[in-house]
Computed example of a mutant assay.
Amino acid sequence: MDTLSDQSRSYIEIERAIAYLRKQAMAQPSLSEVAVVLGVSVSHLQRTFSNWAGISPKRFLQFLTKEHARQQLRQSQAVLQTTIEVGLSSPGRLHDLMVTTEAMTPGEVGALGQGVTVNYGEANTPFGRAMIGWTSRGICNLAFCDDGCEAWIKELAAEWSAATLSSNDREAADLAQRIFAKPSLDKPLHLLLRGTNFQIKVWEALLSIGSSQLSSYGALASAVGSPRAQRAVGSAVAANRIGFLIPCHRVIRESGEIGQYRWGSDRKAAMEMWEAAQSALVE
């Protein structure tokens, strides 16, 4: 596997390949066809995929089919419901072991970060550059940046308008290593959640969807006790400010369609495929 810097550079090509394959899914294009579209050799594309995901392009692309997605949904629904029923302390899932959460109070939200220092920085990830924001109490933002992170930094500043903002790319890079390269069960990441009670309930339920598992909006709504509130659940998923760590990318449509994503549906597909590949490596 490449370093995060290498993976970040490779991601641009990977995303273009995924975008093309999604558009041409019915035609089942070969690897050589994809290589021609990208303007690279087959061997280069083979090497890029293998270094980025850790498995061959052929195996990787199997994870991109709707049938695979629907199969994953069927396998994951019961798991999600059981996990919600018995609580987030259940064993066997990635995120509840490496992530802990704390919700801000309405008073803290209203204070707009007065007296708080919010650190932020840019870092490489397997899905391109990202902006990470954090306070002494935990990570509060993780956004992926296609054309620079300035817009996301401005959004962070607006959310914490009374706080002191401090740039720290070095610590952001260290956090990215802990998130994407070296998750630690001994030193879990702490997240600081800022949202309504319903949003926080949905985000905490998202943490119960294990790595390489998928859920539908309907299943997620049922899991939080609001089976008729799929639209509200969808809005809560879309409002998530902490990409990847709160895995809203694992929620898809019942049809197997990827659906929308705050940081682009092709990136969402890439995340799902990357996680499936990581799981395949340890099978």
Rank of each mutant, 00 (worst) to 15 (best):
E85W: 07
D146I: 00
S90V: 12
D96M: 09
G87N: 07
Q72I: 08
N124Q: 10
P126Y: 09
L97C: 05
G107T: 04
G138D: 07
R129S: 12
A130I: 05
L88T: 04
R59I: 15
Q62F: 07
V79P: 01
I84Y: 10
C149S: 12
G128E: 04
S89I: 02
A158E: 10
T101S: 11
L156P: 00
E155N: 13
W152V: 10
F63Y: 15
Q114Y: 04
Q72R: 15
A103T: 10
A143V: 00
E155P: 02
A143R: 13
T83E: 11
A78S: 15
Q81I: 08
T83Y: 13
D96W: 01
D147N: 12
S76C: 07
T65Q: 08
R70Y: 08
F127S: 08
L94E: 07
P126S: 09
L64Y: 03
D96T: 15
G138H: 01
C145F: 01
N124M: 10
N141I: 10
A123D: 03
G113L: 09
G87V: 05
T135V: 02
F144G: 04
H68W: 14
I132D: 05
R74M: 11
S136W: 01
A143N: 11
L94C: 03
Q62C: 08
D146E: 14
A123P: 00
I153V: 15
C149R: 05
L97I: 06
I139Q: 02
A103I: 04
G121D: 05
V79H: 06
Y120M: 13
R74W: 05
I139M: 08
G133R: 00
S89E: 12
R93C: 04
I132R: 06
T83W: 14
L64F: 06
A69M: 07
W134Q: 03
E122H: 03
Y120Q: 09
L80C: 07
C140K: 03
H68N: 14
M104N: 03
G115V: 01
T125D: 06
N119Q: 04
Q72G: 15
T117A: 11
E108C: 02
I132G: 05
A123W: 09
I139A: 09
